[in-house]
């Protein structure tokens, strides 16, 4: 269980990274925290020609939380996000969800943007980005562009990122005062990929629920408020529309039930947290 051969580039600035992507396209893979890519290399499921290590690039170390929101550069590890002062006050959903991402031993290396790029349908970070109205900021040697999370994730481990592009950073807008946020997850064991993960945002009269682990990417829907008699029906419709499937760890039916029940609990918690 050893990786196939590849070249390794220790990039020193962003331009170097983008140059390699420009020249080598599909053959190149970004190596950030490596927590998803390395197992794939070891199993030889992925066989890139060149790995570009971006962790030495100063531009990617940006981690800033200002009035507009939170900017997380390509080189920021999940643990660094978790260590941000006031995270629980300013971004309660992130603070609640971080402990569910893998284990302490992988969060210490894994990056936020790497998880976004990997686009695993059961991973927490893509779900959080979608639920919080986040943006993915992409760069190629030619251009920079920004996509809302809802447009970035296009399917199973597939994204709108072009082959010559990389995720430069992700942006999560600051939570408006009075907005309620909640996150809940059910996995087989602690730290496993979610069977169902729910993230809810209650913003005044608008209530949104995002669900991970069921469809081929995180999906979000606006729902009625708790107490509204149509909520149950709307959750049921959402549960069915996600197209749950059976797999090794859970049945489609179980996933639908969790969307209904965990979804409702998450919505109610978000609504309660609303000031």
């Amino acid at each position: 269980m050893k990786p196939a051969s590849f070249d390794y580039v220790r990039a020193e600035d962003r331009k170097e990274v983008l140059d390699v992507l420009r020249r080598e396209g599909t053959e190149a893979r970004i190596l950030a925290g490596g927590q998803s890519l390395m197992p794939m290399l070891a199993m030889r499921l992925a066989r890139p020609g060149v790995l570009v290590d971006v962790m030495g690039v100063p531009e990617f170390r940006i981690l800033s939380d200002d009035a507009a929101g939170l900017t997380i550069g390509a080189g920021v590890r999940q643990a660094a996000l978790g260590a941000l002062p006031d995270l629980a006050q300013r971004h309660p959903m992130l603070a609640a969800a971080l402990p569910w991402i893998g284990h302490a031993q992988t969060r210490s290396r894994g990056t936020v943007c790497g998880s976004v790029a990997h686009a695993d349908p059961s991973a927490e970070i893509p779900l959080l980005l979608l639920a919080l109205g986040g943006e993915v900021r992409l760069r190629s040697h030619r251009r920079a562009r920004s996509l809302p999370a809802g447009e970035f994730f296009t399917g199973l481990m597939n994204t709108a990122k072009a082959e010559n592009e990389m995720i430069d950073s992700v942006f999560i807008p600051a939570a408006k005062p009075g907005v309620g946020q909640a996150f809940r997850e059910i996995g087989r064991r602690h730290g496993d990929y979610a069977i169902v993960a729910c993230a809810a945002v209650a913003d005044g009269a608008v209530l949104r629920l995002a669900v991970g682990g069921v469809a081929d990417r995180p999906m979000m829907r606006s729902l009625p408020q708790p107490g509204d008699p149509t909520l149950e029906e709307a959750l049921d419709a959402f549960a069915w529309d996600l197209g749950a499937r059976d797999d090794l760890h859970a049945t489609a039916r179980y996933r639908r039930e969790l969307v209904r029940r965990l979804g409702r609990a998450t919505i109610e918690e978000a609504a309660r947290c609303r000031a």
Partner: peptide, 29 residues
Amino acid sequence: CEHGVCGACTIQVDGSMARACLMLAVQVE
């Protein structure tokens, strides 16, 4: 396990926990 799950290879890199199987030697220059 060599795929980052069992934790037997956990070490510290610059003071932080890390799975040695999920890192390349060239990364720790």
